[in-house]
Simulated assay, not measured.
Amino acid sequence: MTMLSPSIDASISRIAPDFRALSITVKGTQVENADYAARMLKEACVSAQETDYPWAQAHIEAWGDAFRQFGAKPNRTPCSAAALRKRVLKDGAIPSIDPIVDIYNAISIRYAIPVGGENADAYRGRPTLTVADGTEVFDTVKNGEPATEHPDAGEVIWRDDIGVTCRRWNWRQGVRTRIDSQTRNMWFILESLPEMPLDYLHEAGQEMIKHLKVLMPEAVIEETVVCATDKP
């Protein structure tokens, strides 16, 4: 497995010049301790309701502003963190899906941060955050059947050499690169704007790595910070 190294296109600096993210690559093993992941997810749901960070809501709102910069309507297609937290505040919890998915959802909920989790072996080329021209291919599901879409021209997307892996920055993930129970090699991206203090971005990353080590004690994990500009 080649550890994925994401690229941030220069066009992103015009939309969110202070965007920064933590990239985590995992060369994993068989997942253990599934009950642990479900417990961490439950605890994160409680924390978002009872002991939220003072900057959390401002960070969610900043993502809404960023989405508006490229023509998205965050009330209809919110960032992934906003969608998760809305469900938690409404229902009190979200259901367990899969140990790895539970962990990155827990980090997203606790820290009010969009977190993407991808099957690294399904990638072709580097993950790239860029602005779509509208011709790119996005594989999804409609009415239970495989379907193909194209992003809007000007939409912020994650993509690789084959096509779009996530539409509207972090709104909807494609099918091809999703993590499932057989995935062993993974790539995660924790995406933040300046309303989230940088120290907390690093804290979120360290907490996620700690949880992943519980699930996969022999995993090889690497992390790097990536930015829309050269500023840290």
Rank of each mutant, 00 (worst) to 15 (best):
P146S: 05
W169I: 03
D133P: 03
R176P: 06
F67Q: 15
I162Q: 12
R110Q: 12
D52Y: 03
E223R: 13
N185K: 02
P95H: 00
G28L: 01
V225D: 10
V131F: 11
R176G: 03
S23C: 10
M3E: 11
T229F: 03
A48V: 00
T77A: 14
M216E: 06
S13L: 04
S47A: 13
T128A: 13
Y111I: 03
C45I: 00
I94R: 12
T51K: 15
E222T: 04
H202F: 15
P197C: 11
Q49A: 11
I209S: 07
P6D: 04
D18K: 14
D98H: 08
I113E: 07
I189P: 08
R167A: 04
P78Y: 08
P95E: 01
I221P: 09
P127N: 04
P78A: 08
K231V: 00
A21K: 06
R126V: 00
E191D: 15
V31P: 07
I189G: 15
R159F: 03
D65L: 10
A93D: 05
M196H: 13
Q206L: 13
G116T: 02
P54G: 06
D133M: 07
K210W: 05
G28H: 01
N75F: 06
P99S: 01
D180N: 14
R110Y: 02
E191S: 15
C227F: 10
R110N: 09
H59M: 09
T229H: 06
G205R: 07
W158E: 04
R124K: 11
K73V: 02
L41T: 00
V175P: 07
V220P: 09
C227M: 07
A153R: 04
R87A: 15
C227A: 12
A58W: 01
P217L: 03
A81F: 11
N105S: 15
P197Q: 09
T135P: 09
G28P: 06
M208A: 12
G92I: 01
K42N: 04
A147W: 02
P99H: 01
L89R: 14
M1T: 01
K142E: 05
G174S: 08
D133S: 14
W187I: 02
R159P: 00
R87W: 02
F188L: 04
R124A: 09
C79T: 02
A56Q: 05
Y123G: 05
V164E: 05
A93K: 12
T224L: 13
N170A: 14
T29M: 05
D9V: 02
R124Y: 06
C79S: 15
Y123H: 13
L41H: 05
Y104E: 08
R167H: 05
W63N: 14
A72M: 07
V46Q: 14
R68N: 06
Y111W: 15
P99K: 00
T25C: 12
V131W: 10
E222N: 14
A10C: 10
I109P: 15
S181L: 04
W55H: 08
E61N: 10
T135R: 11
K90F: 10
L84M: 14
C166I: 03
V88H: 06
Q57E: 08
G71T: 00
P232D: 13
Q69P: 00
P217F: 03
L198V: 11
A10P: 11
V88A: 09
D161R: 05
R68Y: 01
G174E: 02
P114L: 07
I107T: 12
V175H: 12
W158Q: 05
A132Y: 04
I179T: 02
H202A: 15
D91W: 01
